[in-house]
Design a protein around this nucleic acid. Structure first.
Lengths: 147, 147
DNA sequence: ATTATTTGTTGACAAAGTCCACTAAATAAT
DNA sequence: ATTATTTAGTGGACTTTGTCAACAAATAAT
């Protein structure tokens, strides 16, 4: 169809390839006792520091009811706390507890280790090239604004 | 930990970013009546042209019993055929039927369109850079041999 | 004030994936 | 050759993951 059919084929090939890479990297999470989705929620709360359930729903694109249950579970497990919001009493302010933060940190460390492992065997020069390539891809593909 | 902490952070950022990209690209599959996993199976059979179940299990890292059920479903739906292997009568040779191939082609077309859409707004030069970057990443990260 | 919308929760399901045991065939070991 | 061992596939039973619809309470819009 297009003049650059082989480019499209290569990009799709890259996407398949990188799906695998990401899959490998994500697997380590599963040794933590939490699912990938639960881990995403914990990470997001960690990054946001404080939030309400609906923010997580929007940001992570997870069903409201499902999110409600995940939060209930994590709360029961003592990883996060809910405090009634004064501004809007339908909502609760969600934060990581110290245990939650510890978990968050462990998760981050493990993720970093995974990356180190991924880069194993590459020279500094090669890592630099890789890095540059990733930045370029991200820059080119990120839309200026929401879709 | 490492001298290149910010590189690790950037790579993780890229991974999160690209997870989203892939998620967007994959969504279109869900309008086909088949799940993402089922689509992967169909695509893989299409690429291999002929295979046995176990190859798919290994290549796609899907549980044997689950694969068995997926194949049964796709077979029932008329997308693929199973023929007893003469060489190893434990196995069946799996191929796409004409309907399966049609589905495969549609899937491929849709995937190509998705890529075109992704590249929308980029100049030829930018696309070329993107392409080069992807090839580099793939080259650097693909292990010479199985793990 | 009344209506509409938003936020979160619950019950009931459906879809996706896993674990285990089993059969039958193919290979390896003796 | 006969007996293990391994491999390929299947089916039952199950867990996990995710969805949908209905609901109450609070807030926002008219």
């Amino acid at each position: 169809m297009n003049p650059d059919d082989h480019i499209i084929a290569d990009i799709r090939q890259f996407n398949r390839f990188y799906t695998n890479i990401l899959g490998l990297l994500d697997k380590h999470v599963l040794n933590t006792g939490y699912s990938f989705t639960e881990a995403r929620v914990i990470l997001e709360i960690g990054f946001l520091e404080q939030c309400i359930a609906n923010q997580l729903v929007d940001k992570l694109d997870i069903d409201r009811s499902y999110m409600s249950r995940i939060i209930a579970k994590l709360s029961k497990d003592g990883l996060l706390s809910k405090e009634n919001s004064a501004l809007d009493s339908r909502t609760s302010l969600i934060r990581l507890t110290p245990e939650g933060t510890a978990f968050f940190n462990r998760l981050n460390e493990k993720s970093d280790e995974q990356i180190v492992r991924l880069l194993q065997g590459l020279s500094q020069q090669e890592i630099k090239e890789l890095h540059t390539s990733m930045l370029l891809i991200q820059k080119k593909l990120e839309k200026p604004e929401g879709i």
